[in-house]
């Protein structure tokens, strides 16, 4: 590859590398493992850079990182494409029956400012597939369609994983808020 191409590649990378690091870290937890995956992804991307169509580099890069994360987590690809049976949690109204979540919803700004650790823990506790889809949407800002293409799953499945992730995170945050309220007197 020419020096110009290499420079262009590195320039593209510079614009999104912190986000790739964030995504890999939040997916894998372990720093060394995340660095392995990101480094490998960068080298794979560089090798394929000639085939990059000049579109959305960030999305292209995230797709490569997602694939490398799947290699690290054997069950992830299967989990992602699983057809999930409908469940009562698919109805957001069920959150209304959760007293502690009502506290969160009443004043999200104040309550959630105090729940940084429980939030990160709740994220870690999500199934890998839900965590991945949630991060790609809510933190990294990709559209459903982009996520579906990245992960080779239907848009409907993206929505189901996302919905469950959101529901579980809220449930856990509600529980943490409830515990904090009782503990704090």
């Amino acid at each position: 590859m020419s020096t110009t191409d290499t420079t262009a590649f590195l320039k593209h990378l510079l614009a999104c590398r912190e986000e790739l690091a964030r995504f890999a870290s939040r997916m894998l937890g372990d720093r060394t493992e995340a660095q392995d995956v990101v480094q490998e992804s960068v080298l794979v991307a560089y090798r394929k850079y000639a085939k990059f169509d000049g579109g959305n580099f960030r999305g292209w890069m995230f797709a490569i990182v997602a694939r490398e994360v799947m290699r690290e987590r054997r069950n992830l690809a299967r989990q992602l494409s699983e057809t999930l049976a409908p469940s009562e949690i698919d109805d957001f109204a069920s959150l209304d029956n959760m007293d502690s979540y009502a506290d969160v919803r009443r004043d999200p700004e104040r309550v959630l400012d105090q729940l940084g650790d429980p939030l990160r823990q709740a994220l870690r506790d999500l199934p890998d597939a839900q965590r991945m889809v949630f991060l790609l949407r809510a933190v990294e800002g990709f559209r459903y369609r982009q996520i579906a293409e990245m992960l080779h799953i239907p848009v409907g499945t993206v929505m189901t994983h996302l919905h469950r992730a959101r529901w579980k995170l809220r449930e856990r945050l509600g529980a943490a808020a409830g515990a904090g309220r009782k503990g704090g007197g």
Binding site: M1, L123, L173
Partner: peptide, 27 residues
Amino acid sequence: KIAQGLSDTPDWGAFWGDVERRVRAKG
């Protein structure tokens, strides 16, 4: 708030410098 709470990026120190050197060497 959830997205904000998860938006901090990790500080990987010399990592990116290493990666860049390897990309250039590969080039």
